[in-house]
């Protein structure tokens, strides 16, 4: 079973989801989202009633298969183009917040 409680979404659940989604929330938002999530999910739970015994899920918009490409180098960006929109860059690298190993 999941980490999230079964019945109603709690504030803890909202925090856990926000952490998975990497979205910071303040206390007011946590309360607001908790209420909205419960309302919305309440409505969504309607699909529980749908009779889907033995029905395969449709994952793709179109039933295509085997779309592949040749192993040929093409269409690379220049280093300058790649870094053009970077938050910060140095010596050809993108900078990212520090990752402790």
């Amino acid at each position: 079973m999941g980490f999230i409680s079964d019945k109603e979404i709690t504030e803890e659940d909202v925090k856990h989801i926000a952490n998975l989604a990497k979205i910071d929330l303040d206390e007011v938002e946590i309360k607001k989202f908790k209420k909205q999530f419960n309302d919305i999910l309440d409505y969504f739970n309607k699909i529980d009633e749908a009779e889907t015994e033995g029905v395969e899920p449709t994952y793709h918009g179109l039933n295509l298969k085997n779309v592949t490409r040749e192993d040929e180098v093409k269409d690379e960006l220049s280093q300058k183009e790649a870094l053009e929109n970077a938050n910060e860059s140095e010596d050809g690298f993108f900078k990212s917040p520090r990752v402790k190993e």
Binding site: G2, A18, A21, F37
Partner: peptide, 11 residues
């Protein structure tokens, strides 16, 4: 995003 994260999460 958060509702979608929830809908895909384990369980």
């Amino acid at each position: 995003i958060m509702l979608g994260t929830y809908a895909l999460s384990t369980g």
